[in-house]
Design a binder for these strands. Structure first.
Lengths: 211, 211
DNA sequence: GATTACATGTAACATGTTACATGATTAC
DNA sequence: GTAATCATGTAACATGTTACATGTAATC
């Protein structure tokens, strides 16, 4: 079987296809600003991946200098566009969520109330990080001054996704804070009844999905 | 700085702490059933990690046989409980979402309408996978027959999280399908106006978060 | 009795992260 | 002119996945 192309490389390829020439730094910026929340990668990896693209003939690099310091800029090649097209024809991998705070909630019986609270706060912080970026990006697109203004139609869909995700996180954090506040003083029986009621309520709210 | 303990090991440690003895298989089952959606790991990794726990003195193993075939069962040690407690005192890592379908939406200009639809469908499928498991788990807990019935108070919070997440995915998929359906026939100007309107609407719906 | 699904791993490989090093630019 | 931050990587390491190998139980 043909070796599957790593998806991070394809993400970079996609960026390269959007514009003529990118420096490594611009790539990391773009990744950080726009894609971090649904395609998170360490910035140091970008430098390596884009160099690998050149090795496969999918991009050309050009050296310029800033003072005495080298800067590399990259341009996609026709072969690179071909690789991008081929990848887009493959089925996408499933969505994956990794939530360590929720893992800690899962193990709340071994933690202190304070530690549980910290986990919930982290989820809220995660949401706020998304909303903070969304705020400035939304303003730019609405003002018509965003760097890729011609991509609004697509970016609006991403904005919708991330907004919904962040909102969901915030609302869950609020509900969970509420629900766990009384734990230290509640009898196990009471907690259990409340938990079952919560499950039943969620299920009843979406009968077509859950029954 | 002390070497940080890998979190997957801690997740397993948490399971071991919930009950006396676990076979590797039971661990993989539990991971698959309950934690897959917020802490996804390849099953083959479990076998390796739990063996590493024994190496660090955090678990003991016991060999039994099924026919001529060896089966290993694991029990947490006091040192293991200590390690779990220490880990719970550290700050949790942020939540991470990895959504390749959204990456493809981001690059929709290079894809065919059909490929865009496939990406959206994948998001819906991701949601349905969660809801499918949630359906049976919810039923078990409400019936009082779940394997860890005494953990309802915690599992209800996880159920709430995953339900909300799945619902969010489904609703986004529906909206996005709607929004992109007209793309092939729409003038760029029209798409752009609609996109801006969508961003503005989301922002207006949550003025305290976005303005 | 053959086939399929369950159970139990191992080894090779791919991917990704952290820590570090160092030059350039900006703010003061 | 000096500290802080931006920009540009590299190397070492940790983590994770895929592919494979093989025994066992269920079923038809």
């Amino acid at each position: 079987m043909a070796k599957r192309t790593a998806t991070t490389a394809n993400a970079i390829l996609g960026l390269l296809a959007l514009r003529d020439e990118w420096s490594s730094w611009e790539l990391t910026q773009q990744l950080r600003r726009n894609m971090r929340f649904f395609w998170p990668r360490a910035e140091s990896q970008i430098y390596g991946e884009v160099k690998a693209l050149v090795g496969r003939g999918w991009a050309r690099s050009r050296q310029t200098f800033v003072g005495r310091r080298a800067r590399t800029s990259y341009t996609i090649t026709p072969a690179g566009r071909g690789a991008l097209t081929e990848w887009l024809a493959t089925p996408p991998k499933p969505t994956a969520l990794e939530c360590e705070p929720l893992l800690r909630v899962f193990l709340a019986d071994f933690a202190t109330p304070r530690q549980l609270q910290v986990a919930i706060d982290q989820v809220r912080a995660d949401a706020d990080a998304i909303l903070g970026v969304g705020r400035v990006v939304a303003a730019e697109y609405l003002a018509g001054t965003a760097p890729f203004q011609d991509q609004v139609h697509v970016r609006a869909l991403v904005f919708d996704f991330l907004s919904s995700h962040a909102l969901m996180l915030r609302e869950w954090a609020d509900r969970t804070e509420q629900a766990t506040a009384s734990w230290p003083r509640a009898a196990p029986r009471t907690r259990e009844r409340a938990a079952k009621a919560s499950i039943a309520a969620t299920r009843a709210r979406y009968p077509d999905l859950y029954m």
